[in-house]
């Protein structure tokens, strides 16, 4: 298994639960690294189910959204299931404004997400 710097990955059954180490996903170099780590989960580690838990995330920019969109394309190509959970209201609004709440399967919390896979 690869070592992650921007992510904390925990296995719950066949679901890889991903927490973000950074409260603010802003720094371009960090976002680049974050993207690589997320893509590796799908393309290298071949995780069949991914849950991104946003509980830690207080702030993100459009550059971070761009990485999530690319991740979504890659996971579709690999047939990986993806859900997002624990998004605080102000971050959810960013998803709603950009209509990305239509693109991603967003679930209230981690337990709901795990039950829904």
């Amino acid at each position: 298994m690869a070592a992650y710097r921007r992510l904390e990955v925990t296995d719950v059954g066949d679901v890889a639960v991903v927490n973000f180490n950074d409260r603010k996903i802003l720094d371009e170099a960090f976002i680049q690294e974050l993207g690589q780590e997320l893509f590796a989960l799908v393309e290298k580690d071949k995780r069949p189910k991914l849950l991104l838990n946003f509980a830690n995330v207080e702030f993100l920019s459009s550059a971070a959204l761009g990485k999530l969109i690319t991740l979504n394309k890659k996971r579709k190509a690999e047939g990986v299931e993806l859900k997002l959970s624990n998004i605080r209201p102000e971050i959810y609004e960013v998803f709603a404004i950009t209509k990305l709440n239509k693109l991603f399967d967003i679930v209230e919390d981690e337990a709901d997400a795990l039950a829904a896979f």
Binding site: L65, G66, K67, I69, K73, I97, T98, K99, L103
Partner: peptide
């Protein structure tokens, strides 16, 4: 417009939209 169906999966163009909102 990044929110239209055909642009929703393009990774760019959301900065100005967020600024305006």
């Amino acid at each position: 417009d990044p929110t239209t169906e055909e642009n929703l999966e393009k990774p760019c163009g959301r900065g100005i939209l967020l600024m305006r909102n």
